[in-house]
Design a protein around this nucleic acid. Sequence first.
DNA 1: CGCGAGGGAATGAACTTTCATTCGGTTTCT
DNA 2: AGAAACCGAATGAAAGTTCATTCCCTCGCG
Lengths: 213, 213
Amino acid sequence: MTLAKATLKERTFILMAARTHTASLSERPDKREAILAAALELFAERGFHGTAVPLVAEKAGVGAGTIYRYFESKEALVNALYQQWKGVMLQSILLDFPHEAPIRGQFHAFWRRMFGFAQEHPQAFAFLQLHHHAPYLDARSIALEEASHQPARALFEETRKQQITKDVPPDILIAIVFGAFIGVARAAQEHRFALDEATLDQAEACVWEAIRR
Amino acid sequence: MTLAKATLKERTFILMAARTHTASLSERPDKREAILAAALELFAERGFHGTAVPLVAEKAGVGAGTIYRYFESKEALVNALYQQWKGVMLQSILLDFPHEAPIRGQFHAFWRRMFGFAQEHPQAFAFLQLHHHAPYLDARSIALEEASHQPARALFEETRKQQITKDVPPDILIAIVFGAFIGVARAAQEHRFALDEATLDQAEACVWEAIRR
DNA sequence: CGCGAGGGAATGAACTTTCATTCGGTTTCT
DNA sequence: AGAAACCGAATGAAAGTTCATTCCCTCGCG
């Protein structure tokens, strides 16, 4: 996979191409959305194998058979969901990202945008966590997952050269930063503390200390 | 489900079985262990709902019905597994913990012991991650999960008072440290980098910087 | 010392439920 | 009116669980 060098625009294109199942001319996007929304909620709570398709249909207010007019199978549905939300997450982090700002400002943007997504779409965040590296994810989902690491790696390779961050392999810094992000976001979702501005800033300051030289 | 009593008895039995040979002939701890080992492997790879009970039986070299002689249900099995391994993890971190060492040394011990467990029992580590906060976990499993946070909270409350760590709520530091730990351990399991001594020390130094004052 | 009865552990085919998917009838839109 | 979309009961496969039977070990009696 040479997604490494793919620009944001190209990745966006990939994302759009994911909508493969445009079978007929008069599709009902609202129904498709209803199915995806119901599936998101249920898959996030109970997992893929723990969620029955007829239950998704009921929650979507749709007949069970209708789901198969929009998705080839349950697997296709979960992959469509994964790709949709991974794409949304990527976009909400990368769209208009301040590449020219000072590094510390870029890190701030990164941090805030990640939490912005997790707070705005808590179910999608839980869903993406739960289905990370699941065996039923297809090649496109896995490629998207891989691609999502790329911007951070590029950033940390650059900051390492500039001796802004520690002289540590970027993959380790990424693991620490993303790990801390997920840890904080999850703890907040479990109501261990509130995710207000002050908390976000405190956590950001801590994690920046972890990586800065 | 009236598993409270049975589970307690069974758990006690596990503890004893570890070092006793006085079990009566009617008891077959080896079978129980075989079932637990097979279940660990399969649940860690495919998840709870993704694993069929007869498959566990086959991998354990045991008849399907035999599983139900040792566990009331599939749910009871997954909870027994969760409690067993959460307990092992807790013990391997806390047993003979150097409570009197300097704080930085305690943090080092913490860090190394967590990774020691993750490296020694990668499947158990994956299993615990995957089933964290699953809806089929019973009260005892949840209580164990909750209890596992306690030592870290106590430590960070103390270090905060002593102004060794940042003036930040302990729960936030815990989320960052555990999050970073899980992030690093997972990245290593995905072969993003090797977990040698140098890497462990680098990551530890980073995370210590995150929390120290 | 052998042998057969007794009893509990183990089994896996069978049972019941539940699942993903299909399909024919019905509704809706143009 | 025709065609496409929609529904949900029907379907067959696969799931978790059960239970009648088998197996194996122990013990008591000849």
